[in-house]
Amino acid sequence: MINDRAKHLEDSARWGQWMLAAQAGDQAAYGRLLSELAPVARRMAARQMTAFGVTEDVEDAVQEILLTLHGARHTYDPDRPFLPWFAAIVDHRVKDGLRHHRRHRGRETDIDSVPETFLAQAANTSATDRMDLGKAVAKLPAGQRQAVEMLKIKEMSLAEASAASGQSVPALKVAMHRALKTLKGMLGP
């Protein structure tokens, strides 16, 4: 128990130092910090989510935690311990994720196989449609592809995507608009 506490204090002090360096722009220290924090965030998120019966989406929660930490790194005060600051972000993001999960859960039903709803073959090709769409997205220019991945695939808000990508909100909107236009052209009418 005493060893665990000493390790926590040691980790917290080391991460605090790396975050202090990251605030000054030290990319190597920040990379090390995020690499050490990701598994910690994964453990903490999995523990909380499992308690609520949610076992999927843990990796999404970890990425949300890292994105929030990135956007809020200026709020870390090096005179204070790092772990409570980090734990508060993890807790907030996991609860947010659980709320999101509950909201969507109410509108979704698990089904084993997609039922055929129309006789026409074209109406029952969702898997191949997804593959075509995936290939088309991969062919998009980098900026447009990033906008589609963040806003549509990862379902990030404009503000979050802007914080993560460093692009402004109007630039993301323009990239998304252009991406949709390009995809429409690629996939036909």
Binding site: Q27, L34, Q63, L66, G166
Partner: peptide
């Protein structure tokens, strides 16, 4: 994501 966040750090 970690790579992207750390390489673009300011």
């Amino acid at each position: 994501l970690i790579q992207e966040l750390s390489s673009g750090l300011t």
